[in-house]
């Protein structure tokens, strides 16, 4: 993966471009909102979900070790998520972590855990790419993927209504399709058919 990072800049370049465009868009478009801080808190979450979705799906589809496209979108999704985290904690909650816990209860701890896990996962993906296939790394990556995906689905499809819920539903549907593709592909492989 070190080779891929050094010699194959397209995935991360495009992901960065999408991230930059998304951040500029939410920064400027939110100026028309009734509540700019709230709009930014919401839209950064949406941006994170949209940017991370390719990585979430690639993780299901790909039978091998996740590649540069996964890492690129997994990384920019995290950056957007950290922006969301910053806006939520420091603007919506006025920097009061106690208020976050009081308001969200155990959900707050899962959010903190997701933030920590995802950050750790991305850091390791960049810093220790050579250990991508170790058991510990696979476990961490899988747990993080599951936590982030569950977090997205719960936050969008379960707890919200309207457009955001529809996006959550779309993500759920895409996941189901990705799983089917993966399972069918695996079945064909076991049956000895060509890929």
């Amino acid at each position: 993966m070190t080779t891929a990072r050094r010699s194959y800049p397209l995935p991360f370049g495009l992901a960065l471009l999408l991230l930059g465009a998304g951040v500029v868009a939410f920064t400027l478009l939110s100026l028309s909102a009734d509540d700019v801080s709230y709009a930014r808190t919401e839209w950064t979450a949406l941006l994170s979900m949209l940017l991370a979705t390719p990585a979430v799906l690639l993780y299901v589809l790909d039978r091998g070790t996740p590649g540069p496209w996964w890492r690129a979108f997994w990384t920019v999704g995290l950056i957007a998520y950290l922006l969301h985290f910053w806006w939520a904690v420091f603007r919506s909650f006025n920097g009061d972590l106690g208020a976050v816990v009081e308001r969200q209860g155990w959900v707050a701890y899962t959010n903190f855990a997701v933030t920590g896990l995802w950050t750790l996962d991305v850091l390791i993906a960049w810093v220790l790419p050579g250990r991508a296939d170790t058991l510990a790394r696979i476990v961490l990556r899988s747990v993080t993927w599951a936590a982030v995906t569950a977090s997205f689905l719960a936050a969008a499809a379960l707890f919200r209504t309207g457009t955001i819920a529809q996006i959550g539903d779309a993500l759920a549907l895409a996941l189901v399709i990705a799983f089917l593709v993966r399972v069918l592909g695996l079945a064909r492989l076991l049956a000895g058919e060509p890929k």
Binding site: F12, G13, L14, L17
Partner: peptide, 12 residues
């Protein structure tokens, strides 16, 4: 890739 990355960084 590099061009997109640079533009992305500039936008950020």
């Amino acid at each position: 890739g590099y061009f997109a990355g640079v533009v992305g960084v500039l936008l950020l």
